[in-house]
Simulated assay, not measured.
Amino acid sequence: MEIRRHEILANGIRQRVLVAGPEDGIPVLLIHGNCSSADFWQPLIRRLPATLRLVAPDLRGYGGTQVAPVDATRGLRVFADDVAALLDEPALFGTADPRPVLVGHSLGGGVAMSLLIGHPDRVAGLLLAAPVSPYGFGGTRDLAGTPTTPDFAGTGGGTAGADFVRRLAAAERGTDARTSPRNVLRTAYVADPASLGEDEELLLDSVLSTATGDDNYPGNSEQTGNWPGMAPGDRGVLNTLAPKHFRIADELVAVSTKPPITWVRGDADVIVSDTSLFDLAYLGQLGVVPGWPGAEACPPQPMIGQTRAVLDRYAAAGGSYREIVLPGCGHSPNIERPAEFVAALLDLV
């Protein structure tokens, strides 16, 4: 399908939106993850049938959308409100009142859940691809999302690798350093770098489109006496994911309209995992981050178990969900296993 680009002023910011398919097609809204952009959906869009109306916005501070401050105290609702404002744009969805299927990857999965909570009558279904836990990223110890410390130490803006952020800001494209954006794309976003194929440069461009700084990625942080010495701040992307600001499990279970949910994940994901290499508690357990106070005080976050427990509650409250686990797949099933991902989306549609 031909991919067209629109610029829409919505929710007070200029948003770039990729659009494909006929105006009267079945609406599907694609929400990208952290350190990427709507271009991350391009390989998938090429594989989808022309009966779908595909709308893929760049979130604020990514791709071609305006670099606007991210108020982390609102959690991922700060992004969900931007996306919700697009639902009423005739250039994107025509004059009908759309009820799109939401497809959210990683952080975008949390945005999709937040959009459902805020606008339950505007959503036909959710496909969550390697989504962040409904209890946020890091800093919780069990399936109920119990905080590890009162200030959620070890989460938020201070957890980003400083060298990666520096290289991201400099738009480095090389492979000399383990923390270069290209190497992170090859080793963290996917399980097998060969799955990037001829789209590697497009996807790297998408990663490098990330705006950096305290108001965007990664955000600010606060000092704390709790291990590992930093707690979430109130600005920037990683703080929107911190459980201090993003804890939506109860709201998701209680939502008045419960569309079907499909959860797709890879069993080789190193980002959203019960053994996440981006969870400081797990890195402490491995000895990578010094001073770890032990499993009783600071266990790794059971991200997969938390999501399954919340979706079980969602189903018990009248909703439904399906979990699809792709063996050998990493954090980007839409890139790594496109055939299975397309089938899951078309089943949901």
Rank of each mutant, 00 (worst) to 15 (best):
N239E: 05
T240R: 10
L241T: 06
A242L: 04
I248F: 00
I248T: 07
A249H: 13
D250E: 12
E251K: 11
E251V: 10
L252P: 08
A254M: 04
V255M: 03
S256N: 09
T257I: 14
K258F: 07
K258S: 10
I261H: 04
I261M: 03
W263F: 11
V264A: 02
V264P: 06
G266E: 05
D269L: 04
V272C: 04
V272H: 01
S273C: 04
D274T: 10
D274Y: 01
T275F: 05
S276D: 04
F278L: 12
D279P: 15
L280P: 10
L280N: 09
L280T: 10
A281T: 15
Y282F: 12
L283I: 08
L283T: 06
G284S: 09
G284E: 11
Q285L: 05
G287E: 13
G287N: 08
V289W: 01
G291N: 09
G291I: 11
W292P: 06
W292S: 02
G294C: 12
A295E: 15
A297C: 10
A297E: 12
C298V: 09
P300L: 01
Q301F: 00
P302K: 00
P302R: 01
P302Q: 04
I304R: 04
Q306K: 03
T307C: 00
A309L: 04
L311E: 06
L311M: 09
D312W: 00
D312L: 01
D312P: 08
Y314C: 08
Y314L: 09
A315E: 14
A315C: 14
A316T: 06
A317H: 15
G318R: 09
S320N: 13
Y321A: 06
Y321K: 15
R322Q: 13
V325Y: 14
V325G: 04
L326N: 14
P327G: 11
G328D: 09
C329F: 08
C329Y: 10
G330L: 09
G330C: 06
H331Y: 12
P333E: 14
N334Q: 14
I335K: 02
E336K: 03
R337G: 00
E340Q: 15
F341P: 05
V342R: 02
V342G: 02
